[in-house]
Write a protein that binds this DNA or RNA. Structure first.
Lengths: 228, 228
DNA sequence: TTTACTTTACGTTAAAATGACGCAAACGAA
DNA sequence: TTCGTTTGCGTCATTTTAACGTAAAGTAAA
């Protein structure tokens, strides 16, 4: 019988779908590859797993070195194992998605300016490898997740208005949601807490600022929104 | 720079949570290991990925050779990457779960009799590796899935009564569901089709036999059952 | 045959949730 | 002050849900 380490193993990579929300637009961070394969193509940021790393470690390393981010929300998506997915050989990719508030990071500066870019999720370019598939699964997961988990938590500022949260939901779900019913559901679910302060300097009535209820029981929250 | 194939890679394994439903009991198939590590411990059936296999291929191979099953429902669960999860070295495991109708297979015969066994999911023995974690995630996934996807499809016979389906739901969700409300929801959702035939030979009123509606639109179905 | 008992099939009803709106207060700008 | 817009709170008809009633269909015992 073969010894344990004599088996040949596929390479293991991590690919990241980094979502950011800004100016009423949901975007994904893409890298322009400088090497073959898929040279000059847009791809998801990714990298190979090292022997002493967990997937999350790899994600953190990629986020830090390639796009200058740290300490972000990460969740495993799915593992992709198509035999032909990488022309260099057998590579298994574990997909993760990240949710970040772009305001927190000053990426896309200096030498990286042409290589790292936000793309509106509705206007994606062609992607290398099977990254379109990974991206689409991530988007679908985000859409599902936002209905039963307070996802905005990761995408918005610490303080926000109900209108801002409402716009985030409409943007992600690609649907219109009645403003007043949305307010009622969100408040009834105790999803957010009124801080008592208001956002100043706006043209019209100053809206109240809220923060997420961190004490919310898991799965205590569900928004039923008809996605038609 | 290192060449592509010179990187050291973890081993890649697949671990399977095989669910079967019989006699109003949800069970999982476990193997008693004959080798170290975890010799004589119960573990999930599993095996190493080969270079020319997809995960599903590996699952099929394991199911066929270790427990004599083929052509079953399979879904990827999650990938487990703890550095210490296997005492032999770095092994990444991709968890899958399978749903089968035990009546379809004559496993647990002959030389395997002492090695392969069904365990009631509520009476699980200690498991080797991190298999308890994998099992628990699978059970949780099954519980969630049954609420929006016609899972019974895979676990019951071709023809079944509403009472049998009702019992399956109660068993998996570990809760009581009003018999009459359950019937109404399942029928309104067009989840099942009345075959016009009845199950004969029972003591009391003969119940009508149904089959799953294979033409059911995906996600057209949702049962709201309060899991308290 | 009749009675007793159980399961199945089909209703009923009050309460809760939802969707579709109305409207006045709060603000800056004209 | 007036105007236009956003925000916050409310109403109401309709739908959905949970809880429970009851008669028909069957077997077995009286």
């Amino acid at each position: 019988m073969k010894q344990f380490h004599e088996y040949q193993n596929p390479s293991l990579a991590v690919d990241l779908v980094v979502f950011g929300y800004h100016d009423n637009t949901l975007s994904v961070l893409l890298l322009n590859r400088r090497e073959e394969p898929f040279k000059d193509c847009w791809t998801l940021p990714g990298g190979f797993l090292q022997m002493n790393e967990t997937f999350r470690d790899t994600c953190s390393r990629i986020l830090k070195t390639k796009v200058g981010m740290d300490n972000v929300f990460l969740e495993q998506l799915y593992s992709f194992d198509d035999l032909q997915r990488d022309p260099r050989g057998r590579v298994i990719a574990v997909g993760y998605y990240a949710l970040i508030n772009p305001a927190r990071f000053s990426i896309i500066a200096g030498s990286m300016a042409n290589d790292v870019k936000w793309f509106n999720v509705r206007k994606m370019p062609a992607l290398g490898f099977d990254h379109r598939e990974i991206f689409q699964l991530a988007l679908q997961r985000l859409k599902s997740k936002i209905l039963y988990y307070p996802v905005g938590f990761e995408l918005l500022d610490e303080l926000f208005t109900i209108t801002e949260l409402h716009e985030l939901y409409e943007c992600i779900l690609q649907t219109t949601i009645d403003r007043r019913n949305f307010r009622r559901k969100i408040l009834d679910a105790e999803y957010i807490i009124n801080t008592g302060t208001k956002r100043e300097g706006l043209q019209n009535r100053h809206p109240e600022l809220y923060r997420f209820n961190r004490k919310l029981k898991k799965n205590n929250f569900q928004i039923n929104i008809n996605i038609s």
